[in-house]
Design a protein around this nucleic acid. Sequence first.
DNA 1: GTCTATAGCGCGATAGAC
DNA 2: GTCTATCGCGCTATAGAC
Lengths: 193, 193
Amino acid sequence: MAHDGDTRRAILDAAQRLVQRHGINGISFQHVADAVGIRKASLHHHFATKDDLVRALLERYAREFLARVDGLFQGPGDAPGKLRRYVGLFEATLRDEGGPVCLCGMLGAELAALRAPSVRAVGDFYRANAERLAALLEQGRRDGSLDFEGSAEQAGWLVVSLLEGAMLTVRAEGGASRFRAIGRQLLDLLGAP
Amino acid sequence: MAHDGDTRRAILDAAQRLVQRHGINGISFQHVADAVGIRKASLHHHFATKDDLVRALLERYAREFLARVDGLFQGPGDAPGKLRRYVGLFEATLRDEGGPVCLCGMLGAELAALRAPSVRAVGDFYRANAERLAALLEQGRRDGSLDFEGSAEQAGWLVVSLLEGAMLTVRAEGGASRFRAIGRQLLDLLGAP
DNA sequence: GTCTATAGCGCGATAGAC
DNA sequence: GTCTATCGCGCTATAGAC
């Protein structure tokens, strides 16, 4: 590799894909090294322990995903349209080869294998999404483009839990088309036109 | 042990608790044997391979959970009340010590580690729940005790995905109280009084 | 920064005594 | 049916040459 940063990025890319499919307990340094095309010892040079790798994966994933969400929510369009495209962010992941799910959905299931800082990072990711959704839902309800009962804050948490859960369940039954149908049903329940 | 069936049941009980907390990739025969108080080799006498153990766990879990659902849905009460108690079935699991989740929610995340028959068993569990929920939701909408947009079938899938997802996400952020709040929000969105 | 080699341990699974 | 002992392998992590 020409630059050290290139190898580091290649490792994170390969590791993320593998964890999204198999989980952190389902992969090893050997699997990641094989996918990158380097030796196991070289991987340890960039990430000394598995925990270091997990923390780097979580940091990058949350930063990039939330940047996309902010770009979407702060851009033009009404609340229902933004919600549809938000669901599309998850759906795009699911359509990739090998049935990957949201990194934080997978690690949420394997929470017992994570150290406290990573547990917090997973929870922070859920919370950051729920808060952004709550603001969007409240705005949509105020301007009349959405119509639903209950608090926008709890509705935001419901949307996060639903999308994380749907990514996991549809791999066993229904696939991406079922995920799309669940996304449409969610918009129906939130009173989107 | 007096009867062989007692040991078998003790193994299944211990293994289920461990898998619900750590996942199938997060436990070993050694962990299960320690929890039961027998040796690893004795465990292999009852379940020759890990796959045999997983299949037995799935068979028993689905049978017992769906029996509870059927008893609930076929009993007295209106649709909103039955839905509330259905959510309570999941909530009861979550309140136990050590943060266990639905066995099939956990195994849905670790689907890549399962053989085809177990993958089918997980999908069948989701489907069985979604179908029972769809019938209940449709009945509630017809008798006016529920009020929501979209197809009851898709709404059933939404409820399953939401509850499986919420069990996983609230372990990282919010705990059982957040799960209850999400359950209430779901009933709001479905037009329950 | 990448490599070969290896330490030290836990894993699933099996053999065979009692 | 439960046990001790062990096989062969994969794991995380490290040492040290290049």
